[in-house]
Design a binder for these strands. Sequence first.
DNA 1: CTCCGGGCTC
DNA 2: GAGCCAGGAG
Length: 302
Amino acid sequence: MPCPAPRTPAAERVADALIPWYREHARDLPWRGEAFLHSFGAWGVLVSETMLQQTPVTRVIPHLAAWLERWPTPAALAAATPAEVVHQWANLGYPRRALWLHRAAGSIVAEHGGRIPRDVDALLALPGVGEYTARAVAVFAFGDRHPVVDTNTRRVIARVVHGREQPHPPARRDLDEMAELLPDDDQDAAAVNAAMMELGATVCGARSADCAHCPLAAECAWHRNGHPAGEDRRRRQARYEGSDRQARGAVLRALRAASAHALPVDAVLADWPDAAQRDRAIQSLVDDGLVEAFAHELRLPR
DNA sequence: CTCCGGGCTC
DNA sequence: GAGCCAGGAG
């Protein structure tokens, strides 16, 4: 565990306001509460956090239940084929995450006796597990004390602590800033981590800030200064319509619809407007291990 | 820094 | 149509 950073009085006030607010207003999500942790434990947390990477909560919920019913343990998932895994991932997006989770399950079985590691560095070594997911598992599955920083946390810190509407792009420093807000007690620290994400998701949004219902309004530098606009350092997201990503998605959707069966190459996106783009998409899917290519056929990988 | 899904909202 | 979403890898 990292050594507790010294807390300022302001940091203590933030935690003192956040914890009761969270107990009162937290959404009733499936991965909160004892039933989930008791049934699925750290594996359920790892699966849910992976699905939640860049995919909204409301879309994850039904897929998570189905996934854990089919593969209730890392060993069960490790025994599946990539084709089954990619098919089950369905339309959650960024399907490389499904392969990473599959490979992580194999590593958990081979190197950790089938149990999810508790150590952050061991978690970080798993494919598809980065700074956010590693600490989310350590904190929400095992109850340890670490800073957990996601897009919500970064935005809340930018506003409350720095008085800026928008956060800078993700940086290592974010972890230190969050660590400075954490109480010494493990459970309180976990609650503050969860509450910062919840606040950003439900009250202090990217598009709208409902300061009238915010437990941190009295502490918030951005609110106190009258919501200054400030400069916007966000990077613009590439256009999706007509992109290679869209082509990849269409190829994979066709192969999922064919289940594990192979499809003739010419039948996959036969009417795609840009043939070169279609071929580029297929090649990149093969490179990622999401598609297997034969002389004239494609299929999900076995 | 760029790439990587897909659905929903403003 | 553009931005956003419990990010991660190369």
